[in-house]
């Protein structure tokens, strides 16, 4: 156990616990976009900024999702400086992705301007990389990641082409905080629009429901060493 001061109150943090997790446990709201409990934090979206100091040292601003509690730490999640910094980050994100409902929701929580003072970029993605982290750490497909860097940075398949390792599971669609990864599905194919990945579906031999992309079945068989006929019928019919 680690004792720290959070918003002027002494609290006990678990060993290795991040300030974001601790604050959430203590009922303190910190806004985040790129945080997901299933994957390692990277501090990409900068929405969860807090102010902290060690042993009465200088106060620093950092992302709370990557800040691990240490003895003698004093953290402020609600100071004027914190709100000012979060507001700037949010306005930059809103200039990059104008009209995004999730960002506008966050803007209403704070006093960020809905029409930011920065030039609009008309992108749909904030490059937080949550999709890529989930693809690697949870799914294990490692189908998408960052390409290029700096102002050219983009996320997608290798060399920004259709990702051949994508199994079409849709985990990236589900976690994307900007909701910019769309999935289209009919009886024959499933398409992850942002990655330009289209996969034929497998139909259940009992009920005929297109329950999984063929390619996903092949990968699962390889990864999990499943019997050859295990995926011929869908999960509902298997019961």
């Amino acid at each position: 156990m680690v004792e720290i001061t959070l918003n002027g109150k002494k609290v006990e943090a678990r060993d290795g616990e991040t300030i974001l997790d601790l604050a959430t446990r203590e009922g303190i709201h910190i806004p985040t976009l790129c945080h997901h409990p299933a994957v390692e934090p990277t501090g990409a979206c900068r929405m969860c900024l807090v102010e902290f100091s060690m042993n009465n040292g200088p106060k620093k601003i950092t992302s709370s999702c990557t800040l691990v509690a240490e003895p003698g730490m004093v953290v402020e999640t609600d100071s004027e400086r914190v709100h000012k910094n979060r507001k700037s980050v949010l306005e930059l994100l809103m200039a990059r992705v104008p009209g995004n409902p999730e960002l506008e929701k966050l803007a209403k929580e704070s006093d960020a301007r809905l029409a930011p003072r920065f030039p609009e970029m008309k992108e749909d993605c904030i490059l937080c990389g949550l999709c890529a982290r989930v693809c690697e750490e949870v799914v294990g497909a490692k189908a998408i990641f960052f390409t290029n860097r700096g102002t050219e940075l983009d996320v997608g398949g290798p060399f920004l082409e259709s990702p051949e390792d994508c199994i079409g599971c849709g985990a990236c669609v589900y976690v994307c905080p900007m909701d910019c990864i769309k999935m289209e599905q009919n009886a024959e194919t499933r398409k992850i629009v942002k990655w330009d990945r289209e996969l034929p579906m497998r139909k259940c031999e009992v009920c005929g429901y297109p329950f999984m992309p063929n390619f996903q079945v092949l990968r699962f068989k390889k990864w999990a060493d499943m019997p050859g006929d295990y995926f011929k019928i869908c999960a509902d019919c298997r019961k």
Partner: peptide
Amino acid sequence: STTQVSSLATF
């Protein structure tokens, strides 16, 4: 992974 090589080669 192909993505690892692609991200390094373009970075």
